[in-house]
Design a protein around this nucleic acid. Structure first.
Lengths: 235, 235
DNA sequence: CATTATAATTATACCGGTATAATTTATCAA
DNA sequence: TTGATAAATTATACCGGTATAATTATAATG
């Protein structure tokens, strides 16, 4: 792991472990430099990372301060997307369908593949603390996600892609809507037809820019509480 | 304006003006350095800024590439929050209420002020391209936002705070929910009771960490289409 | 005591350098 | 042509330095 990431992690653990309240001032740069035996630039980079994560804010001439924590029960929605921000929650999944298909024109377009190429189609319900969280339909470019099975899809597919396949997930584009549930969706989520849903279309890319996953997710509005932090562009 | 911000702006304009498609490779660092007559570090900083904004992605050993553009009709939802990402849309507002109040316990808590301190309370409907976009209730710390009137509140209050008052807006915490409209809200937004809404509570902070605005916004689900880009934490 | 001017503190901008890791291109052998 | 190997390209990590701007603390002044 990179030095500045390591330092960012340690500072983060320090904040969380000691439960430092909002406004707490961290040691000055000079102190951090000697504490972590590194250069100024590296400390600054670590702190920028933490600022991007919403953990701290920096005030020129004054210091570096701890930012507000998440409310309880809210899903942290960072620049990473939801996916790995679910730690602390009990997440499970039930696979409704899993097979290899030829993509529709829309799917092929979003995955930037040929309609003749294969994709893995996965439909599943995800649960958070025993409640239905969302209904998800995902299309994976089979040239990248070479293999999937029921067991993998019952857990975290992204974990498998990262750790199992060794692919590096980069960034994503999300299109967010508020809509009403149709009858079929309502049944799957245990809600009423016409109830609200958060509907999100996402294209996930590897860190080299290749799209590998196009997904449509309908969230159960009763479980849809998200915490989101903005940071300004001054870093 | 800072050099790296200036460079970032020029590159952004270059991308948008020439409508460079996704995947277009930008000039290599060395070229950008001489083109903008600056150091490597400054170019890298400019590019990191653009990466955070979701305009480009960088691939080590390969190059810097243009990222996907927004779909038409979607509101860009960046780390800045909605507020100033509405360029290209016709935004207006109707003020329903504007007065000076003593804050409730919740408002005082979120603005970190005393219940005896004054706040400006503003309730308004905002319109996008003539349609109701949202119903907004905002509480401004009067010690920071010293003056407000009907005319200001009909336009962009944040513009006024930035440019008129010279305050520097820093970051924000947002709590996002999906709910159903009550009768009163539905009437204001021209929708039906029970229709979906996106409900967002936000605390806005100055760049020195002081909260100056606590707001509750209910969005019209028909206008609620947002484009959101994540970036990964590798910068 | 309040106000103003000055100094110290502190984070940030900007520079330019070396080393490194990922990718792409060129080279060579089978 | 294919596949392996080597070289070139390219972005990034990390270093340590000077200059600068914002804030905070201190001193001086009335």
């Amino acid at each position: 792991m990179l030095k500045y990431q390591q330092i960012a992690n340690e500072i983060q653990q320090d904040i969380e472990k000691n439960d430092l309240p909002q406004g707490t001032k961290l040691p000055v740069l000079e102190t951090l430099m000697s504490q972590y035996k590194t250069s100024k630039s590296t400390v600054i980079k670590a702190l920028s990372l933490l600022e991007r994560k919403g953990l701290v804010y920096q005030v020129r001439g004054s210091g570096i301060f701890v930012r507000r924590h998440n409310r309880k029960g809210y899903i942290s929605f960072s620049n990473q997307g939801f996916s790995d921000e679910l730690s602390g929650f009990d997440i499970t999944a039930k696979v409704l369908e899993l097979d290899i298909q030829k993509p529709s024109a829309e799917v092929a377009f979003n995955l930037k593949i040929d309609p003749e190429d294969d994709v893995y189609y996965v439909k599943r319900i995800r649960y958070i603390n025993g409640q239905t969280l969302c209904l998800e339909e995902s299309y994976y470019n089979k040239a990248i996600v070479t293999y999937l099975n029921n067991e993998i899809a019952t857990g975290s597919i992204f974990d498998y892609i990262s750790n199992g396949l060794g692919a590096k997930i980069g960034f994503s584009d999300m299109y967010v809507h508020i809509q009403k549930l149709d009858e079929n969706e309502a049944q799957h989520l245990g809600l009423q037809t016409g109830d609200p849903k958060l509907f999100v279309e996402t294209i996930f890319y590897l860190n080299n820019g290749l799209p590998f996953d196009f997904s449509r997710i309908s969230y159960n509005y009763e479980q849809s509480q998200f915490f989101f932090q903005s940071t300004g562009y001054s870093l």
